[in-house]
Write a protein that binds this DNA or RNA. Structure first.
Lengths: 101, 101
DNA sequence: ACCCTTGTTCGACAACTATCGAACGACGCC
DNA sequence: GGCGTCGTTCGATAGTTGTCGAACAAGGGT
């Protein structure tokens, strides 16, 4: 089964934005941006593994991440270069933690 | 009744992104970015006026636009300065028309 | 071979959202 | 005052999405 990793240019902008417009997924993206390639299991944000798997699929199908198998785990990484090339400033704008004031 | 125009810093990023993650709303935002302040009625993107009104409210409540009454119309404008300050690069990244290839 | 760990998939369910027509309200104009 | 325009709000509906538990599949270790 192919991992469904689309060409980023083929994904409508609205899909990319929708993928980022969820708190859990944004936390995943932040963790990936900071920690680099990580196993799915490392994202414990208070949701079940079924839900986590769902969110990872949404991110993957929106062209935001790539996944590869590694033993019994799967390693996920941000497609940062492509993202920055196609949407310069988007990730930076979204990832930056804003001051609470 | 106040027009519900929140402080941008009080709006969660996910709300801003969700507001942009819709094709109709993105067209509205693009039109505003190009044409400046415009009347609600100038956005005819194949939806009813009820739906248009709904989308304009979503944009307003996400802090993306401001609305003011002007006679029988209402003029909407993009809060571009604030947006660019708080999320530098976001609008630029999203507004740029992608090459179809 | 067995089991444990890691993820995915499958319903199911609740919540949200985009859409519409119709009713309503506000304003300007004749 | 009366009418037409512009826009909002209401109620309904169909579709999408976030969430879960349970079942399943694939690997690694012992």
């Amino acid at each position: 089964m192919e991992p469904h990793e689309p060409d980023l240019t083929a994904v409508p902008v609205t899909n990319v934005l929708a993928a980022l417009a969820d708190d859990v997924r944004l936390q995943i993206v932040r963790a990936l941006a900071e920690g680099g390639e990580s196993a799915c299991g490392s994202f414990d944000f208070g949701v079940s593994k079924a839900t986590r798997s769902h969110h990872l699929r949404v991110l993957r199908e929106a062209g935001l991440t790539r996944t590869r198998a590694a033993g019994t785990s799967r390693l996920v990484r941000l497609r940062r270069d492509e993202l920055d090339k196609l949407y310069p400033g988007l990730l930076d704008a979204v990832l930056t933690q804003r001051p609470p004031a």
